[in-house]
């Protein structure tokens, strides 16, 4: 079974990240609100994201999955200027493709709570398409802080799912 998890509600309007509290905000598929404040059409309903009804629209190679489909959850640790914190990552896998991501933080220090809320709000506008193992890389260059814990959680999910 392939429960779709709550996705981060973010709106990107000229770069301003609107913080929607992720934890527990379930289900809204049109999480990516393309707010277009200057268009004046007043139409708030977004174009339906390509969620459709079935995830495997055009997947031709559905047979050879490396990972078992389903939801996986793991927790990773990372360090912040305020001490060690963790993030919990849940991923939905279907045919080796990540179809949904959910991240919650359990920060204890005030600073990290703010870091985490900002981090969480910035993640997962569209998390569909790349095979989890498709890139043969030894390094990732993005940024720092929370990504370390995030990657640690991902590694755990990988081993759980294979």
């Amino acid at each position: 079974m392939n429960t779709r998890i709550g996705r981060t509600a973010i709106a990107i309007a000229s770069g301003a990240v609107v913080i929607g509290s992720l934890a527990g905000c379930a289900t809204d598929q049109s999480a990516e609100a393309e707010a277009a404040p200057s268009t004046g059409s007043g139409d708030t309903s977004t174009t339906t994201p390509s969620t459709g009804t079935d995830a495997n629209d055009t997947d031709s190679s559905a047979t050879s999955s490396t990972y078992t489909d389903g939801d996986y959850t793991a927790t990773g640790e990372y360090s912040t200027p305020g001490g060690r914190e963790d993030v919990t990552v849940t991923i939905t896998l279907a045919d080796d493709v990540v179809t949904a991501v959910d991240v919650t933080g359990s920060a204890t220090s005030g600073n990290s709570k703010q870091y985490q809320s900002a981090f969480i709000s910035g993640i997962s506008a569209e998390v569909v398409g790349k095979d989890i193992d498709s890139l043969d890389v030894s390094k990732v260059a993005g940024s720092s802080l929370t990504s370390g814990g995030f990657n640690a959680a991902l590694d755990t999910i990988r081993s759980d799912a294979s």
């Binding site: 569209e126 043969d136 390094k139 990732v140 260059a141 940024s143 990657n151």
Partner: peptide, 12 residues
């Protein structure tokens, strides 16, 4: 070394 350029909105 091969380096992935991490998506700024999605670290997966």
């Amino acid at each position: 070394v091969r380096v992935a350029l991490e998506h700024p909105y999605d670290t997966t």
